[in-house]
Design a protein around this nucleic acid. Structure first.
Length: 270
DNA sequence: ATGACGGCAAAATGCCGA
């Protein structure tokens, strides 16, 4: 079985490229992030014609996560228990209430529990979004710990855009990111806590750095200059990790006009 | 200090992204 995660940066704009990539790389399950559409706007019919069932959550033009599978989709869960909301929009209404954004969806596909995750960006260190990001990760880690405690043999993949570069090797210039999000000690500790919980990066052993990136800014010729960031990850539970035979980052997919700013990351299971 | 690119919408400017 081959599974992948990909921040597609709008599924409606990227549909042809995504379907072509799934076909060319023989992908069974794809976790998508930043679909940037509501459920009723998601091109589910085109995925069905290609042989994939899809589950998606999108409540507006922002965020949006989905899982496409041709090996079945069972036990769908939208958002993890206790998933923190963000109240920027709610603050403008008469009755403030945090909105649980479309950033997490899970499904069981051929016995593997897959989470498609779009971790909040953080924006800047002084922005409420940064605290939201850390809180979001803290609750997710606690949940993940309980999933594993409930079944130590569970095959679980936490796949998505984590919006954290775990080490200085994972950004083209640590100096450039000094004082910005994605590389702070707090974010890195939040990320490393998943490994301490038993969820390890299953792709890194096959894509050693430095210079192994999954994201390149559209501006400043970042891709052409090989100036990127490694922020998209598949973290596997022990039972999932034991099945991994190969993995990679398809930087070829970042080339050409109409590419997402993120490359797909894939994993081959035995 | 800002913009570049690129996507979206209560669209021709603002919000968001990393």
């Amino acid at each position: 079985m081959r599974l992948a995660t990909w921040n597609v940066n709008s599924i409606r704009t990227r549909l042809d490229r995504v379907l072509a990539w799934l076909d060319q790389h023989d992908i069974d399950v794809l976790a998508m992030q930043e679909t940037k559409c509501r459920d009723d706007q998601f091109p589910a019919e085109q995925f069905a014609e290609a042989g994939y069932d899809v589950t998606h959550i999108g409540i507006n033009q922002w965020n949006g996560v989905a899982i496409a599978s041709r090996v079945g989709i069972e036990d769908v869960q939208v958002a993890f228990d206790g998933q923190p909301g963000f109240d920027r929009d709610a603050a403008e209404t008469l009755i403030p209430a945090p909105i649980v954004e479309s950033r997490a969806i899970a499904a069981t596909c051929a016995g593997v529990r897959i989470w498609s995750l779009y971790v909040p960006n953080g924006r800047s260190l002084s922005d409420p979004h940064y605290d939201y990001k850390l809180d979001w990760l803290r609750v997710l880690r606690k949940e993940a710990e309980q999933w594993l405690a409930a079944n130590p043999d569970a095959q679980i993949a936490l796949a998505g855009d984590w919006n954290i570069a775990p080490t200085d090797e994972d950004v083209w210039s640590p100096e450039f990111f000094a004082g910005k999000t994605h590389t702070t000690t707090a974010e890195r500790e939040a990320f490393d806590a998943f490994a301490a919980t038993g969820f390890t990066d299953v792709v890194r052993p096959f894509t050693p750095g430095p210079g192994a990136y999954t994201y390149w800014d559209y501006t400043q010729l970042r891709f052409q200059r090989r100036e990127g960031m490694r922020i998209d990850f598949v973290l596997g539970s022990p039972a999932f990790t034991a099945r991994v035979e190969a993995a990679g980052i398809d930087r070829e997919e970042r080339k050409g006009t109409g590419a997402s700013d993120h490359a797909p990351v894939w994993v081959q299971l035995g």
